Computed example of a mutant assay.
Amino acid sequence: MAAMGISTGTIADMLVVLGDNPERIRSEAAFASLCGVCPIPASSGKTSRHRLNRGGNRRANAALYRVALVRMQRHPPTRAYVERRTAEGKSPREIRRCLKRYIAREIFAHLCMRKPPASAEGNAA
């Protein structure tokens, strides 16, 4: 929750997505798919673009959307990112899609990555 824009409600929605066995999610891409923020190719002809996945857990997707909006308004690095992507010609919808995927990656790193067990030597002192 120390990350900008992530509240207890967001964490609760992510824990619901994870369920009682977070080891079943093998990668951040699988977590993004569960949240419905994995990109799907939507190219036609010479145009190469992606769209949002309409599947996945809609509450988790909505939570990521709220975090993205808060960061776009109040987080200086995110605001700089939005300005840079806008200058590249990306639409606000595409920028939000990229931000949601980044936020899902960040949450996955905090919730699903195994932490090394505390050593017994440190507890003996």
Rank of each mutant, 00 (worst) to 15 (best):
R85C: 05
S119F: 01
M113N: 05
R59F: 08
V70L: 11
P77C: 01
A68K: 06
L111W: 05
R66F: 06
M14E: 11
Y102P: 00
S43I: 02
A63I: 01
V16A: 14
R58W: 01
L69R: 04
G122S: 13
Y102L: 04
C38E: 14
H75G: 06
Y65M: 05
T8V: 07
A63Y: 09
G55C: 12
C112T: 14
C35E: 13
S27N: 08
C38Q: 00
G5D: 06
A2H: 13
P39C: 02
C38K: 11
L34N: 06
A120G: 03
E23R: 06
R96Y: 00
E106G: 07
E106N: 03
V82I: 13
K90T: 13
I25M: 04
A124F: 05
E88T: 10
G55W: 04
S48C: 09
A118N: 01
V82Q: 10
G55Y: 07
A68D: 09
R26M: 13
V82C: 11
M1T: 11
G55F: 09
M1C: 05
D20W: 00
R24V: 11
Q73V: 08
S44K: 15
I107Q: 06
R71N: 04
A68T: 08
E121K: 03
N53P: 00
A63P: 02
R79C: 07
G9V: 14
P116E: 15
S119K: 05
V67K: 04
T86A: 10
R49H: 11
S43K: 10
R105A: 09
A80L: 06
L69E: 04
N21G: 00
T8W: 12
C38A: 14
M14I: 04
H50G: 10
S7I: 02
C35A: 11
A68W: 08
S44G: 15
A124D: 10
N53D: 13
R97P: 00
R114N: 09
V82K: 07
N123Q: 13
R84Q: 14
A124E: 12
C112I: 01
S119W: 03
M72W: 04
E88V: 03
A109D: 12
R74Q: 09
I103R: 04
L15I: 08
Y65P: 02
E23F: 01
D13R: 15
A104Q: 02
R79P: 12
R51F: 04
V17I: 13
T47H: 03
T47Q: 15
S119Q: 05
S44W: 04
L64D: 11
R58E: 00
R114K: 12
